[in-house]
Design a protein around this nucleic acid. Sequence first.
DNA 1: CTTTAAATTTAGACTAGTCTAAAAATTTGT
DNA 2: ACAAATTTTTAGACTAGTCTAAATTTAAAG
Lengths: 222, 222
Amino acid sequence: MVISFTEENYLKAIYTLSNQYDWVEVSTNQISAHLKNKAATVTDMLKRLSEKKLIAYKPYQGVKLTDKGKRTAITVVRKHRLWEVFLVDKLNFKWDEVHDIAEQLEHIHSDELIEKLDDFLGRPKSDPHGDPIPDANGKFSNKRSILLSSGVKKGSYVVTGVTDHSTSYLQYLTQLGISLGFQLKIEEINEYDQSLKIKINNKQSNFISHKAASHLLVEQRS
Amino acid sequence: MVISFTEENYLKAIYTLSNQYDWVEVSTNQISAHLKNKAATVTDMLKRLSEKKLIAYKPYQGVKLTDKGKRTAITVVRKHRLWEVFLVDKLNFKWDEVHDIAEQLEHIHSDELIEKLDDFLGRPKSDPHGDPIPDANGKFSNKRSILLSSGVKKGSYVVTGVTDHSTSYLQYLTQLGISLGFQLKIEEINEYDQSLKIKINNKQSNFISHKAASHLLVEQRS
DNA sequence: CTTTAAATTTAGACTAGTCTAAAAATTTGT
DNA sequence: ACAAATTTTTAGACTAGTCTAAATTTAAAG
Ligand SMILES: [Mn+2]
Ligand SMILES: [Mn+2]
Ligand SMILES: [Mn+2]
Ligand SMILES: [Mn+2]
């Protein structure tokens, strides 16, 4: 069965939203907002995806991916993230420059290609934003990171990922001197606005707002 | 101006045919045969490309690319050939396996990407089939190769390219032991059917038909 | 120079993917 | 429990790209 570029994007959107909201049904409006399409357009597509057994769709009740749909979505995610690694590691793009190009590359159809690319890149476990890369069978190696915003104590952490992939956020982090794998030592927690004072890799200290911290994934160290 | 995937394929087809037939106008039927679309479909597209000033189109009189159309076509060709180099040199694909994947990759839109890819590959001058790769300005370094079929004499030649990119032809050459850059010594020319007996890289000798020879580009050596 | 054949275009129809406006169903608030 | 607000679906329309069948134009043959 042939799955179009557009259909792949819907499946990926449903997967991402579903993942975000604890695997409950995803609503038409959520998909509509995510893809910046009108709700009526989404309904049309849901009917087609349902026809193809890629989603389970009950009118007015939201949708869930079928196993087939989930497999397809994970493959697209896998391709997206592997291409991002290629762009950063091999072509020297910055981490804030690769998302849009990967949005195109993720739709290239060739199993051979993606496996050879994976080999060439040394079978990376995560992409330039710290997101895990599923293996050829769709399995993720689950990593237990927490958000820098939620209930952290003073102490040492290491940056493992971001949950906002926007250019502006990534550039802001770069400007602050924060990259993946860097050590962050929380020196102060401001009760009033939840902002943090952090020392970055034992060098400069910077303030970071609650909002900015809420998109930064870290693991405790110490 | 945004140029679609489909439009890019038409421009590339017109470029290729135009190139083949000495830069005279290309006919609707030629494009139709090349793209395996119906003539009526081609006519529709020619009107749209003409509207966008990518081709000069006079009904019933065939088409030529405008400068803008030619630049676009050459960019697509450049991308196709660079991606083929990537697939063969970096991902270890065989030369007969890369064309279809490159047909997809050639439509990825990003100037940054193609320049960085070119750098990464070491600014190659030709693709895995010996076809020249235009530079970022669309300039080809012109190479003067001849077909192994046309009026060759006994003597030494080196393989510089092929004019048939089909998997079956490329696999046939591989089976014969012929690759790009290999030396071919013509030992016999059979007057009757124009077939040749050639020694390959000073190793085995093989017979090659006129038809097979007529798609093999070579340069004289000696 | 006419007739016939071939090439090309036009007309009309279809699918995928999108939209707006209106109708229907569900959820929320009192 | 019922009215109002919100969400979702339906209806109808549009574009890009494709097709078949018919009409038109150009080229070839006698
Ligand atoms: Mn991304
Ligand atoms: Mn990413
Ligand atoms: Mn090719
Ligand atoms: Mn090639």
